[in-house]
Structures are given as structure tokens and as C-alpha cells.
């Protein structure tokens, strides 16, 4: 962990502070703090059961954290004082000097997407399987279309305002289908798509909500190397062209190391490393967490990490090893 101020600390889009999540007696996340830089691709990695998905569920409101603050900042250069002020005011979100701040831990899940602009995908893909690919993307634009349809009444009468909005929504969907290479499957039911296409569709659907932060839960799981490469291109495109920050959980180190601007490593609900790809890769604690601990390295590793660690995946310090793993 670098003590100096890193790029992502300057203007974070998301700041998680002292996040703790307990299920009964089990502490899944323990006093976790990290930043997601604006316009960065940030990866959250760690062995299985480290609490990554739990962090996601807290950020997207599916779980209410036991303790901690999760602030989303839209607009440039919002300082911590403004967030502090909003926190004291007891509101869920509010406008500040250069934009607006959303305290996600206070908001219900759907509001986080609707108002704050956080979209997510799921580890086990959750598409609307019986609806077509196009319909999936239209559902994602529900709130915008709902307002345009005058909460259904204007839409029922077929007023031109709604028809224009519906056309725009369809165009938007088609744009995203083009970017995800799904246009020729637009009229097929989502459940009929192959696995890789379903993953892409889920990302396209999340993007159709118009987010500021996109949270991807293992987007490369089950993809072949070619599809992984396409995913990298898609994520870069999303970051660069749409000004969307990306937070992703991933086990595929090829993807993680290649595209991440910033990597956070979790183990047992705690942050064990935080830095750029190069920094994290050489961090002995990370190596220990992933590979288990060698006899000689015991001293170098914190005591609490020493006992019986899982070593499910094995990124090593060399790139060759990463490639051979996947």
C-alpha cells in the first residue's frame, strides 16, 4: 500500500469508509475503506470467500451495511467536507458545490441505480430470459421511459412525446447492441444466447441505465480467451468514451492485470493490498493470501493471515504463470 497520494484518491467517484458487514456472528467485511477513482477501472480481487460480492451488495444496496459510509460523488473535485456535511444533515443525497453526493448506505437498492447512477451485473447472470435481447435493454431504461409515458397515461394514449422517447430508447439499445456484437441476436430470447453473449448483454443492459459507476461481478467468468480480450476492449470503451468508472470483481488475472488502473485485494473481509497492478503483484501479503505461505516468508506476513489460507487461484508474480492458469 503506498503511503503517498495515489491518482484515485484525488477525485474518487466512490469512497467506501470503515465498511463493516456482519451476518449474525460472522464478520464478512471488517472495517474496509477504499476509493474508486473517477474514470478508472478498479478491480476488487481476493480468494474465494474474501467478501468481494458482499462489498458489491453493500455498494448497490442489496445489503444494508452494519457500519460504514459509502459515498458516491458525481461531479468533479468534491471534497470530503461536503460529504461530511451531507452525512450530518441526515439526508440520503444532496447537491454540493461541484455536483452531487449520494450516501449509498442510506438508499434502497433501486434508488441507487435510479438516482445515484450505479449499475451492476451479477456473478450468476441475471437476465430476463424469456424476453428478447432488445426488451432486456428497454427494461433497463424503465425510469426514463416511465416519465416519458406520463406514468403510463400518456403512453396509453400514444402521445407523440412518448413515441419519440420510445424511439430514442430503442436507438440507445441498438447502439449498445452494436458495441457488444449482439445486434443480430436482438430479437432472440436472452436465455437462448451463449454464455459469453449473455455476459455482454448483462453489461449492455447495465449501461442502458445510464450509470456513473458500473459494478461488474466476475464479468470474465466462463469466457474463452478471445471473449476475454473483447471484454477488455468493451470495458476500455466504456471507461474512455462514456466517462463511466468501473468497479469489477474478477478472478481472471489476465483481465485484471491488463485493464485495471487500480487494484484492491481483499482477504477475510479485510483489505490486504491496494495499489496499481505492478504494486499489488509484488506485494508479499497478496502472494501469501493467494498461494499460501512458505516457511521462509512467515515473518513477512501478518499473523492473522498465517493460518490455513485457501489457495484456490494462483496468480504469481510472473505473467507467464497468469496466462497458463487461464
Amino acid at each position: 500500500m503506498s503511503a503517498t497520494t495515489s491518482a484515485w484518491m484525488l477525485d474518487p467517484v466512490l469512497k467506501v469508509e470503515h465498511l463493516t458487514m456482519r451476518f449474525g456472528g460472522l464478520t464478512a467485511i471488517d472495517n474496509l475503506s477504499f476509493e474508486v477513482g473517477r474514470g478508472h477501472i478498479t478491480a476488487l480481487i481476493g480468494p474465494n470467500g474474501a467478501g468481494k460480492t458482499t462489498v458489491f451488495n453493500c455498494v448497490t444496496g442489496f445489503y444494508k451495511p452494519t457500519e460504514g459510509r459509502i459515498s458516491l460523488r458525481r461531479g468533479r473535485g468534491i471534497d470530503d467536507a461536503a460529504v461530511e456535511e451531507l452525512t450530518k444533515s441526515g439526508q440520503q443525497f444532496g447537491n454540493v458545490a461541484n455536483g452531487s453526493v449520494y450516501l449509498l448506505e442510506r438508499m434502497p437498492d433501486f434508488k441507487i441505480t435510479e438516482v445515484a447512477g450505479v449499475a451492476r451485473t451479477f456473478q450468476n447472470i441475471r437476465l430476463f430470459g424469456g424476453m428478447t435481447v432488445l426488451e432486456n435493454l428497454l427494461v433497463a431504461q424503465h425510469n426514463r421511459l416511465m416519465r416519458a409515458s406520463g406514468f403510463t397515461f400518456a403512453g396509453l394514449l400514444g402521445l407523440p412525446g412518448y413515441r419519440r422517447a420510445a424511439e430514442a430508447a430503442k436507438d440507445n439499445a441498438i447502439t449498445w447492441l452494436k458495441h457488444t456484437n449482439l445486434l443480430d441476436r436482438a430479437d432472440d430470447p436472452a436465455a437462448d444466447l451463449p454464455y459469453g453473449a449473455q455476459r455482454r448483454l448483462e453489461i449492455a443492459r447495465a449501461m442502458c441505465t445510464g450509470p456513473a459507476l458500473l459494478c461488474l461481478d466476475e464479468p470474465a467468468a466462463g469466457l474463452n480467451p478471445r471473449e476475454s480480450a473483447e471484454l477488455n476492449t468493451l470495458l476500455r470503451y466504456i471507461r474512455d468514451e462514456h466517462d463511466v468508472s468501473v468497479l469489477l470483481i474478477e478472478h481472471d488475472m489476465g483481465v485484471v492485470m491488463e485493464i485495471s488502473d487500480h487494484i484492491i485485494v481483499l482477504d477475510y473481509g479485510k483489505k490486504i493490498s491496494d495499489g496499481t497492478a505492478a504494486e499489488v503483484r509484488n506485494d508479499p501479503k497478496v502472494i501469501a493470501a493467494y498461494l499460501g505461505v512458505d516457511d521462509e516468508e512467515v515473518d513477512a506476513v501478518e499473523e492473522d493471515l498465517a493460518a490455513g489460507l485457501p489457495h484456490a487461484t494462483s496468480p504469481s508474480t510472473t505473467t507467464q504463470a497468469q496466462e497458463s492458469r487461464s
Binding site: T60, F62, E114
Partner: peptide, 24 residues
Amino acid sequence: LPIGRAWEALREDEIACRSLGINT
């Protein structure tokens, strides 16, 4: 209309609906 599509989406997957900002 969006409302009808949201009904069907709800039938398909409620959690996904919520993740898309739909007030279920």
C-alpha cells in the same frame, strides 16, 4: 409500455429489476 415490460421483467427476475433501478 414501460409498465407492462416492467411487469414481465418482474416475473422473470425481481432482483435484476431492482438492479436496474425499477421500484418493484
